[in-house]
Amino acid sequence: MSRESDVEAQQSHGSSACSQPHGSVTQSQGSSSQSQGISSSSTSTMPNSSQSSHSSSGTLSSLETVSTQELYSIPEDQEPEDQEPEEPTPAPWARLWALQDGFANLECVNDNYWFGRDKSCEYCFDEPLLKRTDKYRTYSKKHFRIFREVGPKNSYIAYIEDHSGNGTFVNTELVGKGKRRPLNNNSEIALSLSRNKVFVFFDLTVDDQSVYPKALRDEYIMSKTLGSGACGEVKLAFERKTCKKVAIKIISKRKFAIGSAREADPALNVETEIEILKKLNHPCIIKIKNFFDAEDYYIVLELMEGGELFDKVVGNKRLKEATCKLYFYQMLLAVQYLHENGIIHRDLKPENVLLSSQEEDCLIKITDFGHSKILGETSLMRTLCGTPTYLAPEVLVSVGTAGYNRAVDCWSLGVILFICLSGYPPFSEHRTQVSLKDQITSGKYNFIPEVWAEVSEKALDLVKKLLVVDPKARFTTEEALRHPWLQDEDMKRKFQDLLSEENESTALPQVL
Results as ranks from 00 to 15, higher is better:
44 S>Q: 05
225 T>C: 01
23 G>D: 08
213 P>A: 03
110 N>E: 10
161 E>T: 15
225 T>G: 05
134 D>L: 12
209 Q>D: 10
56 S>N: 11
140 S>L: 01
204 L>C: 03
258 I>C: 11
40 S>Q: 05
96 L>A: 05
193 L>F: 02
18 C>L: 10
123 Y>R: 15
184 N>P: 01
27 Q>Y: 07
271 E>V: 13
154 N>K: 15
200 V>L: 09
169 F>L: 12
64 E>S: 12
132 R>H: 05
156 Y>T: 10
193 L>A: 00
207 D>V: 10
216 L>A: 10
34 Q>V: 11
164 S>N: 04
19 S>F: 01
65 T>R: 02
241 K>V: 01
132 R>N: 09
34 Q>C: 09
123 Y>M: 15
131 K>H: 07
132 R>V: 11
179 K>L: 08
44 S>D: 09
142 K>M: 13
211 V>N: 15
64 E>F: 02
101 D>G: 11
137 R>Q: 01
107 E>T: 13
183 L>C: 11
86 E>D: 05
253 K>V: 02
103 F>G: 08
219 E>W: 01
24 S>P: 07
93 W>A: 02
104 A>E: 10
263 E>K: 14
155 S>A: 12
10 Q>C: 07
148 R>M: 13
93 W>G: 02
186 N>A: 06
193 L>D: 00
3 R>V: 10
84 E>M: 10
166 N>Q: 04
183 L>T: 01
48 N>Y: 09
198 V>T: 07
89 T>N: 08
259 G>I: 02
106 L>W: 12
122 E>G: 11
9 A>D: 12
97 W>C: 08
154 N>Q: 15
226 L>T: 06
40 S>T: 08
231 C>E: 12
139 Y>L: 04
174 L>W: 12
18 C>R: 05
87 E>S: 09
196 N>M: 15
265 D>P: 13
172 T>P: 11
267 A>C: 11
82 D>H: 14
8 E>N: 13
271 E>Y: 10
232 G>C: 05
45 T>L: 11
267 A>R: 11
256 F>M: 02
257 A>T: 04
187 S>M: 11
104 A>I: 13
180 R>T: 03
97 W>F: 15
76 E>K: 14
115 F>T: 05
178 G>L: 13
36 Q>C: 12
147 F>L: 12
224 K>M: 00
52 S>G: 14
75 P>Q: 09
20 Q>A: 09
112 N>V: 08
208 D>C: 01
166 N>G: 05
153 K>P: 02
182 P>N: 09
240 R>M: 08
257 A>L: 04
24 S>M: 14
22 H>A: 08
244 K>W: 06
31 S>E: 12
50 S>L: 06
133 T>I: 05
169 F>P: 00
188 E>V: 00
214 K>N: 07
15 S>A: 09
257 A>E: 03
222 M>I: 07
117 R>Q: 00
179 K>S: 10
160 I>N: 02
174 L>S: 06
216 L>K: 00
227 G>I: 03
22 H>E: 07
67 S>R: 01
196 N>K: 13
133 T>Y: 10
206 V>T: 02
4 E>W: 03
167 G>Q: 01
151 G>A: 02
38 I>V: 13
15 S>T: 06
54 H>R: 09
76 E>I: 06
172 T>K: 15
185 N>S: 11
54 H>V: 11
123 Y>E: 15
83 Q>W: 11
96 L>W: 01
99 L>R: 14
85 P>V: 11
217 R>L: 08
75 P>H: 15
179 K>M: 01
77 D>T: 05
241 K>L: 07
86 E>F: 06
40 S>M: 03
100 Q>D: 04
17 A>E: 15
141 K>D: 00
5 S>T: 10
178 G>K: 02
88 P>G: 04
162 D>V: 03
80 P>Q: 13
96 L>N: 05
178 G>M: 05
159 Y>G: 14
41 S>K: 15
258 I>D: 02
122 E>W: 15
245 K>M: 07
182 P>G: 02
86 E>R: 06
92 P>V: 03
17 A>M: 10
171 N>R: 10
54 H>Y: 12
85 P>T: 09
103 F>W: 08
215 A>E: 15
57 S>I: 04
267 A>Y: 11
153 K>T: 14
239 E>K: 09
73 S>R: 05
234 V>L: 03
214 K>I: 08
60 L>G: 11
119 K>M: 10
47 P>V: 06
243 C>I: 15
86 E>A: 09
89 T>G: 06
216 L>W: 11
221 I>Y: 12
120 S>T: 09
271 E>Q: 07
6 D>T: 15
26 T>N: 04
270 V>L: 14
150 V>H: 00
198 V>I: 08
244 K>H: 09
45 T>I: 09
63 L>C: 08
243 C>K: 02
130 L>G: 06
144 F>G: 02
146 I>K: 00
119 K>L: 09
197 K>F: 11
236 L>N: 06
177 K>Q: 09
159 Y>N: 15
116 G>E: 01
99 L>K: 12
92 P>A: 15
268 L>Y: 10
219 E>L: 04
179 K>D: 05
265 D>G: 05
47 P>A: 08
201 F>A: 01
113 Y>T: 14
33 S>C: 15
78 Q>V: 05
24 S>R: 06
127 E>S: 10
51 Q>P: 09
170 V>I: 10
52 S>F: 05
158 A>K: 14
122 E>M: 15
12 S>G: 10
203 D>W: 00
229 G>C: 02
123 Y>L: 15
161 E>V: 15
81 E>T: 05
87 E>W: 07
24 S>K: 05
8 E>T: 05
163 H>R: 07
152 P>H: 09
139 Y>F: 11
97 W>T: 02
98 A>P: 14
102 G>N: 13
132 R>G: 12
11 Q>S: 06
32 S>H: 12
176 G>E: 07
135 K>N: 08
175 V>L: 05
46 M>C: 15
66 V>Y: 13
259 G>P: 05
222 M>P: 04
6 D>A: 11
136 Y>R: 05
248 I>T: 14
10 Q>M: 05
80 P>Y: 12
17 A>I: 06
95 R>A: 02
18 C>H: 10
178 G>Y: 03
195 R>W: 13
9 A>H: 07
21 P>H: 05
171 N>K: 12
146 I>F: 11
225 T>M: 15
102 G>V: 14
8 E>L: 11
91 A>D: 06
247 A>Q: 04
10 Q>K: 08
30 G>L: 06
65 T>N: 12
143 H>T: 01
16 S>R: 08
196 N>E: 02
175 V>I: 10
183 L>I: 01
132 R>P: 05
169 F>V: 02
73 S>L: 15
165 G>N: 15
116 G>I: 01
92 P>G: 15
220 Y>Q: 00
106 L>T: 14
126 D>S: 09
4 E>T: 08
154 N>G: 05
83 Q>H: 13
200 V>C: 03
90 P>Y: 06
151 G>T: 15
229 G>V: 08
12 S>W: 11
126 D>M: 12
52 S>R: 04
231 C>Y: 13
3 R>D: 11
142 K>N: 05
117 R>E: 01
146 I>T: 01
245 K>H: 03
43 T>Q: 13
12 S>K: 05
86 E>P: 03
189 I>G: 01
107 E>S: 09
130 L>M: 06
55 S>D: 15
138 T>N: 03
268 L>V: 04
135 K>C: 08
270 V>R: 15
226 L>V: 02
105 N>T: 07
20 Q>D: 01
36 Q>A: 12
67 S>I: 14
216 L>D: 01
86 E>Y: 15
82 D>N: 12
44 S>I: 06
42 S>F: 07
170 V>R: 02
221 I>N: 00
235 K>C: 05
48 N>T: 12
177 K>Y: 15
199 F>M: 14
220 Y>P: 00
224 K>F: 14
26 T>W: 07
102 G>R: 13
15 S>K: 05
249 K>Y: 15
156 Y>G: 05
196 N>W: 11
247 A>N: 00
244 K>A: 11
228 S>T: 02
132 R>M: 10
154 N>S: 10
194 S>C: 03
154 N>H: 05
203 D>P: 00
99 L>E: 13
231 C>S: 10
147 F>H: 00
94 A>W: 01
174 L>R: 06
8 E>Q: 14
123 Y>G: 14
66 V>N: 04
103 F>L: 10
189 I>S: 08
250 I>N: 15
259 G>W: 10
3 R>S: 08
212 Y>V: 04
23 G>C: 05
138 T>Q: 02
245 K>F: 11
244 K>Y: 14
142 K>P: 00
164 S>V: 07
154 N>M: 12
127 E>A: 06
233 E>V: 08
125 F>Y: 02
188 E>G: 01
139 Y>V: 01
16 S>N: 12
108 C>I: 02
